[in-house]
Design a protein around this nucleic acid. Structure first.
Lengths: 261, 261
DNA sequence: CGCTGTCAAGAGCAGTGCTCGGAAAAGTTG
DNA sequence: CAACTTTTCCGAGCACTGCTCTTGACAGCG
């Protein structure tokens, strides 16, 4: 271009960068499409190149390797799930702790059912020699952040740490140190541990349903899985000391929630 | 074959069958070795053939396809895990319900940590177009059988169905029909649902630990994971109404279990 | 000797990830 | 405009995979 813009990135250079980003996005989109249909193991760089009408070696100018492509898809999946959980949980009245919990759980399960292969990519078997490359840990923490935030608000609405009536063994208290550094000192150990248990139970349940492990255990008629999941969500909430009906349960004993219909 | 031994299996035929079974077993052993080191995605029929010193096409006389080999490994893994859970749970005094529960949980986690790739094969992402070929469902049910058996004995040691004080919504009751047909009518709905939740939570926790999802949440110092898991097991037991100390808890309120150390 | 059944080996096909050299296009400078 | 540099792209190629098909070797039996 003209010599008036020699040093600063010329507009043409910017245009190149733009088309480059555009092509990269197209590659990622195609990859996501293939992932949705064929699963992670069926993701082929050559197939993507064919679909985009370019040579297989050309895509290596945009994506370093198949592993890097997988990593980008993983980050995208974590972000999509985290964003879904955040927005759906944020749409609920802050006082309605049980509603927020149910919204977060529902977001996770709904997104997983809508994007099973993406869910399997991030919560299923990790690829063999693959170690999460640090770019994934931040998006991966988004959904657990939402859940820990609820935990924090549960603790804030409670009268007191309840002395030390039923506490956690000291070695477990030590094991919970990383989670404690995230959630802060306000959440009692018991609640923190119970929250992590509910967190693992939530994803265990979703994975079981998605990976076919509930076959022959929970019915597959329309509505069965929904009913089972909804009741589980209700019970996790009860274990955390929050119930759908009121905002501040007085007694520990959870009243049986009435179904809305 | 010759017409002198047309009907009854000749001794030679038997010998052939024997060596055939022998080679098949060697193939499976080599496959299991490769699976343990390289994971399921890295399992190569050609590599197995090389290791056994035979041509790649020769193994197709013993194993129909890679998928069939995977299926056999899956069945073997389910059997190994189920057997571990059965024996370890059976070694505990039948009256000690909490001990049986802890033994079963510990067996699952211990086997998973010892055989991570085999665990991932059966409880991780299912292979893309793969549907469990009916030969896998029986071995797959072994570990859940153990857990349901404990549930049944919990119900048997209880005073009564506790009226219908806190029951389960009717749609969830319907969803639990398959599990109910296994466990029998003695187990109340609440306990059945709670048991399935603990089941999912157990495998969710094990999967989280194995797949690296606990990173940054639960400590990785020696003993941390053990303490976290042990406390989770204790709390699941408490949610099922069994505590390590006594055999029959009177009140619903779970007493805080004392740690053995 | 021939016949039959089982087995193994080899070549081959279609596909994969990935690398490399050269060609072509695009942008920059004299 | 011409020359130069940078960026992009394609094709060939390597090593690997699952799987098939043809060929050949071996045994037992008539």
């Amino acid at each position: 271009m003209s010599q008036t813009e020699r040093d600063r990135p010329s507009v043409l250079r910017a245009a190149r960068e733009r088309t480059r980003a555009e092509i990269t996005r197209e590659i990622l989109d195609a990859a996501r499409r293939h992932l949705a249909t064929d699963g992670a193991s069926g993701l082929s760089l050559r197939a993507i190149a064919r679909e985009l009408g370019m040579s297989s070696s050309a895509v290596y100018g945009y994506v370093a390797s198949r592993d890097e492509l997988l990593t980008r898809l993983i980050v995208a999946a974590y972000d999509a799930l985290g964003s879904a959980a955040e927005t759906q949980e944020a749409a609920v009245d802050r006082e309605d702790l049980a509603g927020r919990w149910a919204a977060a759980c529902g977001a996770v399960q709904g997104w997983a059912l809508a994007n099973p292969n993406e869910y399997a990519l991030i919560y299923g078997t990790p690829v063999p020699g693959y170690t999460a490359p640090a770019a994934t840990i931040a998006p991966a923490a988004r959904v657990s952040s939402v859940l820990l935030g609820i935990l924090r608000d549960i603790a804030a609405g409670r009268p007191a740490p309840a002395t030390a009536e039923d506490d956690v063994p000291p070695d477990d208290r030590e094991a919970l140190a990383p989670a404690r550094s995230i959630v802060g000192p306000e959440v009692p150990d018991t609640l923190l541990h119970q929250g992590l248990m509910a967190w693992a139970a939530l994803f265990g349940t979703v994975s079981f349903e998605l990976f076919g492990q509930l076959h022959g255990i929970v019915g597959e008629q329309p509505g069965d899985r929904e009913a089972y999941f909804a009741e589980s969500v209700r019970r996790w909430a009860a274990q955390l000391g929050i119930t759908p009906a009121g905002t501040a349960p007085a007694a520990r004993k959870p009243a049986r929630p009435l179904e809305p219909a």
